[in-house]
Design a protein around this nucleic acid. Structure first.
Lengths: 104, 104
DNA sequence: TATATTTGCAACCAATTAGTAGCACGTAAT
DNA sequence: ATTACGTGCTACTAATTGGTTGCAAATATA
């Protein structure tokens, strides 16, 4: 089964889950209250996020708190890195050229 | 049909296509030579990338050159932005605090 | 004009996915 | 001890996805 970070963040609900637990660790039930879907559906999303290590567990009695794992998110950032040059450097250079043309 | 950037980059073949055309605009046939799959399969991936505007067309006779659109990729970067703080500044500071607590 | 090339599109198939419902296992509360 | 709560897991279903094949349209070449 393919279980990489890119596939994990492809789902909007999972992205929302990540945003929520990045601010504060939460239990599946607490998370489910933020969405229109069932507790089980949220739990399945959490499973996907856990399997690709974007999320870590912290068991506390019968509750399980899920934490965001920033390290794993770095993978997306690393993949993005070479593309970033395309919209930063070259674009800035283009801006400079355009500004110089306007002055004339 | 959901057609956003995150869903588009979820597929490894599509990510490879983006990497290739980011360096040089290419035709579907030229792209297909880089993969084990058929020309039509690559074409379907290109369609997905085009529909979410990660890729732009340039028609030249009966050939179509596909270009990478960096602007659209920014969306991923913007979503990543708040998380970036977690693995850079704040995370280092948290580590320092935790280490100091352990020493006591 | 006749033929070959490049491509998009529609139909179809197998595999995967998101969601639901029900059950079982611990843990807490009465 | 009994009941309620929080959770993961396993079918099951409907929708989506990645891939293939075949075809038609447009452009190039003989």
């Amino acid at each position: 089964m393919r279980r990489d970070v890119f596939q994990a963040i492809a789902d909007p609900t999972r992205r929302a889950i990540l945003t929520l637990i990045a601010m504060q660790a939460m239990t599946p039930n607490a998370l489910a209250e933020h969405f229109d879907t069932s507790r089980q559906a949220v739990s399945k999303h959490i499973k996907v996020l856990t399997e690709c290590q974007l999320v870590k567990q912290e068991v506390s009695g019968r509750e399980i708190y899920y934490h965001f794992n920033p390290k794993k998110m770095k993978e997306v950032d690393r993949w993005l890195e070479p593309f970033r040059n395309l919209w930063e450097d070259r674009f800035n250079k283009l801006d400079i050229v355009l500004n110089q043309l306007k002055k004339k």
